[in-house]
Design a binder for these strands. Structure first.
Ligand SMILES: [Mg+2]
Ligand SMILES: [Mg+2]
Length: 987
RNA sequence: GCUGUGAGCGU
DNA sequence: ATTACTATTGACGCTCACAGC
């Protein structure tokens, strides 16, 4: 082997379990990357282990040269930055169901300084758009295109020419950065496949690495390597999504929220209509081309607005990783590199990167855990250790000042405060019961560890930057740059903790993470106790905050209390710092992590702060959010409850009418849900609306991949579905609804019952004077279906001491029909207190028609037969639809389904003969032979008569009652089970 | 109510 | 007119909808 040199080096090994091993002697061997990699598990009498056999060239270069992110390696070039934006339009070739390129815009800015806050529209750029016909261009299109304003439009003969010209443009401009929206996931994928298919010239010019032979094109969204040498800033990448607050990250939405521009949405299925040489006009195609031009601008404007490039550069400079990785997202790698740099500098040997495996520690813990599967969350991911503490909220509407006291970056502070580090914390024993114990923090003599010092450095640098920002003479450009810097420092410090508990991390150290959160819980508990010792009421708290009820109505007094409390808390810690995060004038505390408040801004201004409520979630449509917003405003208005409740009821009534009257636009009904996996990978796609919609999108040639946010609307079923699939199948893409022109109708009832009512009900839960049934009624929904279980039960059976008479209670019960063997007549067994109709005489039961006696045994058999008939009917499980226009009666359904099976009907089915009906029937039979009740319900002179009768016929009554009771007990137990187990049936 | 699945808010 | 390869994942705490039992 050549190129080898040897060198003894003292180093400390950082392996696995918490504390680093002792300093030992190492032999450093270096050889070229042209030689094969050594296996990492070999040993010999001369050495026990080899480390870093699989270190990548990138890691080595960056560490050895101490390269901390983007910088010039040879200082000979002037600062040149060339940014390009590409925007492509594709069309689905339905014959082969593949996507082709029809239009592409390259918008190029040259010599840009990314820290320059000037918006892109104020900077010069060149615009070049290539467009090709599907068959032929509309007449005169070429002429009209040449007269386009700023941007150059180049009509191309075919797709291959388009691609070639695009490649030439990219080659000439040779951009350092490509900015796009869904470029990696969509555009690049189509570009690559089309370039290969059509044998485009110099295809590798899309990147800076020249190739002639095509390497395999990987899975969609994984082909970043084709762009080697250029940076890709994709607005839809995970990295960008973390920086942009948006529900869908669609271009249209981000333009609206971040640029205040109304971007026109184009239904992909309409693309062909713009191109049709016969139908379309040149103007129409031009609008399409200009739309493409404009999108390229929007993408750049958004990138500038959210500052992806400057921020990712700062993050990369801090961590010393690759800029492209930061742009693409994934925090773990940044964290890994910042630690690699630090440990390398201090001459530690770091744990090797394990490809495709969890870290050694994680794998070991897995074996020990065995099948003792802990609390699973998603994708079989277990919770590995305990996290933050959340106090049980004291629910309700608070109207005295509430002080929100919050620890400043709790976890980074804890790591510093307790000197938590790989090198300082002793490894822990595993308990007998497999429970891992929390390690002890080191004693105060132990010198500061690597991690605490790293975080301290970051925090100090941030403090310096923030003090710079206070300078009055600072230019806006400087301020912006400093703000980005301090943001990057904060993000970096805050992400250190997360990676300690990350099982795939090279620096995985679960005990350290567990210790950090443990201290967090301890601190929060102590903080609460301190507040209570100061006679302060803590109404809520989450991980690093306590909500203190000041119980005063004067702001100055509240501030005084907060200052006292703050001092009391901060005196207990060296570094840890609590601060007043905000003051709430009113607070509606609904659940853990769910509340709304009127926050006092400086002086007299206020703002509303909402956390965790349904209206913050993308799965609730705009309409639902609007209604929630109104209701919330009323509740927080501070006015008298009656007035508030009345206004809410009124509002809901008009909403119900407006919705049913079709006065609300389609956009207000759109629901969003993200695909957690690719749509094909769902085991039960049938029951998931967003998956169904995504699958249909794919069938039409559009893309729908893991991570995409799918919009959909619930429509009225067209029929042909089974009960199981009905709900999900009724979800349609908004474009489908728009295209269908009245074919598809929005399911207004569904929206009222599932999107509007539940959030409102949750908001009003602590409000006196209204309830679910009342709210449902206002919306025009059947209040009975929304009554609470207790209420429904009352309505069924009456309360125990109800005034409801038996006649009322049993009005729907079927009578006990007695057949006389002599005269073959049939008569109902009337209540015995009803002396005129009853067939029970003091001498015994007798036929009212022929006066012959009826035997006890005969009556008993007849009763049993009829009871069995009812029970059989119950088990037949006939269901009937509640929609009066349908009335479908069937037993086709699964026992627990509720949807009507009939095509096109949206009714809800209930058991025609329900458990409640059966129960009531049996109680009716029993009541017929209830001596005590008969006496009680009789009045005046009748009472004596009845009393005498039941005394004489006691045996008969007891026999019959026992018969009824036997079945009642059997079925009664069944009923109790059903009513408690399947409480949903009594909604 | 339990189980499972799927959502995504919160710190 | 030269390579080429995986794989890709910050933590935990809490609520909600749906299907099935
Ligand atoms: Mg905090
Ligand atoms: Mg907080």
């Amino acid at each position: 082997m050549k190129d080898i040199y040897e060198d003894f080096d003292r180093a400390v090994c950082l392996r696995g379990e918490g504390r680093a091993k002792k300093e030992t002697q190492w032999l450093k061997v270096v050889y070229g990357f042209n030689e094969p990699q050594l296996p990492n598990n070999v040993s010999s009498p001369n050495f026990s282990r080899i480390f870093a056999t699989n270190t990548t060239a990138f890691e080595l270069l960056v560490l050895k040269r101490k390269i901390m992110g983007p910088c010039w390696l040879q200082i000979k070039n002037p600062q040149v930055d060339n940014k390009g934006v590409s925007c492509t339009r594709t069309i689905v070739n339905h014959r082969e169901n593949i996507r082709e390129i029809v239009c592409a815009t390259a918008r190029i800015w040259s010599n840009i300084d990314i820290d320059d806050p000037t918006p892109p529209e104020a900077l010069p750029c060149t615009v070049r758009t290539f467009v090709r016909p599907l068959d032929r261009f509309p007449p005169n299109f070429e002429v009209r295109a040449s007269g386009n304003g700023k941007g150059l439009i180049s009509p191309m003969k075919n797709e291959r020419m388009l691609l070639n010209s695009l490649l030439v443009t990219i080659h000439r401009a040779d951009p350092d950065v490509i900015v796009g929206h869904e470029f990696l996931g969509v555009s690049l994928d189509v570009l690559l496949h089309r370039m290969r298919e059509l044998k485009a010239d110099h295809w590798s010019r899309i990147g800076r690495f020249r190739r002639s032979r095509w390497p395999p094109i990987g899975r969609q969204g994984t082909n970043l390597r084709f762009l080697s040498g250029r940076l890709l800033g994709d607005l839809a990448s995970d990295g960008a999504k973390d920086m942009i607050t948006s529900t869908t990250w669609s271009l249209t939405e981000m333009c609206k929220t971040h640029l205040k521009s109304d971007r026109q949405d184009i239904d992909p299925d309409d693309t062909a209509s713009y191109f049709d040489g016969g139908v379309s006009s040149p103007e129409r195609l031009l609008t399409f081309v200009r739309h493409c031009e404009l999108d390229a601008h929007y993408q750049m404007a958004l990138a500038a607005k959210v500052q992806i490039l400057p921020l990712t550069r700062q993050l990369t400079n801090l961590a010393g990783n690759s800029w492209n990785k930061t742009l693409n997202g994934g925090r773990a790698e940044r964290n890994e590199y910042i630690l690699l740099h630090e440990f390398h500098r201090l001459k530690y040997v770091c744990p090797d990167k394990l490809w495709g495996k969890k870290s050694a520690v994680a794998a070991k813990a897995e074996n020990e855990d065995g099948d003792a599967e802990g609390g699973k969350t998603t994708k079989g991911k277990r919770d590995k250790y305990k996290g933050g503490l959340v106090f049980e909220p004291k629910r309700g509407l608070w109207d005295k000042y509430i002080l929100v006291m919050d620890f400043n970056s709790l976890y980074p502070s804890i790591i510093q405060e307790y000197n938590i580090d790989f090198t300082t914390v002793e490894s822990v024993e595993v308990d007998a019961d497999g429970e891992e114990k929390i390690p002890e923090p080191p004693s105060s003599e132990v010198p500061q560890g690597v991690l605490p010092r790293l975080i301290a450095t970051l925090v100090n640098r941030r403090r310096q930057v923030k003090s710079l920002m206070k300078d009055k003479k600072a230019t806006p450009a400087q301020l912006l740059q400093w703000d980005i810097k301090q943001m990057a420092l904060k993000l970096t410090a805050n992400s250190m903790y997360g990676c300690l508990g990350f099982e795939y991390s090279r620096f995985y150290a679960r005990p350290l993470a567990a210790l950090t959160t443990f201290k967090g819980r301890e601190i929060l508990t102590h903080t609460r106790e301190l507040a209570e010792s100061m006679q302060l009421d803590v109404v809520y708290g989450d991980t690093d905050s306590v909500f203190v009820n000041s119980n005063v109505t004067e702001l100055a007094e509240a501030l005084k209390i907060s200052a006292e409390f703050k001092k009391a808390v901060n005196d207990r810690y060296k570094l840890l710092e609590i601060d007043l995060d905000g003051i709430f004038q009113r607070l509606l505390l609904l659940q853990k992590k769910k509340y709304a408040a009127v926050k006092v801004e400086d002086g007299s201004r206020t703002s509303t702060e909402v956390k965790g409520l349904d209206m913050k979630r993308r799965e609730y449509c705009v309409l639902s959010k609007t209604v929630s917003q109104y209701v919330l405003e009323q509740i927080l208005s501070g006015e008298a409850t009656e007035a508030v409740v009345e206004r809410i009821h009124e509002y809901l009534t008009t909403i119900g009418e407006d919705v049913r009257g079709g006065k609300i636009k389609l956009d207000e009904f759109i629901i969003f849900k993200r695909l957690g996996k690719n749509p094909e990978d769902y085991p039960d796609a049938k029951s998931q609306p967003h998956v169904q919609v995504a699958l249909r999108m794919k069938a039409r040639g559009l893309t729908a991949r893991a991570g995409d946010v799918i919009p959909y609307v619930f429509c009225i079923g067209e029929g042909g579905e089974t009960a199981k699939t009905a709900q999900a199948d009724r979800a349609k893409h908004p474009d489908e609804v728009r295209r269908s022109s009245d074919e598809l109708k929005i399911d207004y009832e569904h929206y009222l019952a599932h999107q509007i009512l539940p959030p409102i009900e949750r908001l009003c839960e602590p409000i006196e004077g209204t309830d679910r049934a009342r709210l449902a009624e206002c919306l025009g929904l059947d209040p009975n279906r929304y009554r609470s279980a207790a209420e429904s039960e009352e309505r069924y059976f009456g309360t125990l001491d109800s005034l409801m008479s038996d006649a009322e209670r049993f009005k729907d019960a079927e009578p006990f029909l007695v057949r006389c063997r002599s005269c073959r007549g049939q008569v109902a067994f009337a209540p015995i207190s009803d002396r005129e109709s009853s067939l029970l005489l003091p001498s015994g039961p007798a036929c009212p028609a022929c006066q012959s006696a009826l035997g006890t045994a005969s009556l008993q058999v007849q009763l049993e037969t009829q009871i069995r008939g009812h029970i059989a009917k119950y088990y037949e499980s006939w269901t009937v639809c509640d929609d009066p226009t349908c009335g479908n009666r069937t037993r086709m359904m699964g026992v627990y389904g509720r949807r009507c099976l009939r095509q096109g009907c949206r009714g809800t089915v209930a058991f025609e003969y329900s458990d409640a009906t059966l129960y009531n029937q049996l109680r009716f039979y029993l009541s017929l032979f209830d001596a005590e009740k008969a006496v009680k319900t009789s009045t005046g002179s009748k009472a004596d008569e009845v009393k005498a009768l039941v005394d004489l016929q006691g045996d008969f009554l007891r026999t019959m009652a026992a018969t009824a009771e036997k079945y009642l007990n059997q079925s009664g137990r069944r009923w109790v089970q059903l009513s408690t187990l399947f409480s949903f049936m009594k909604m």
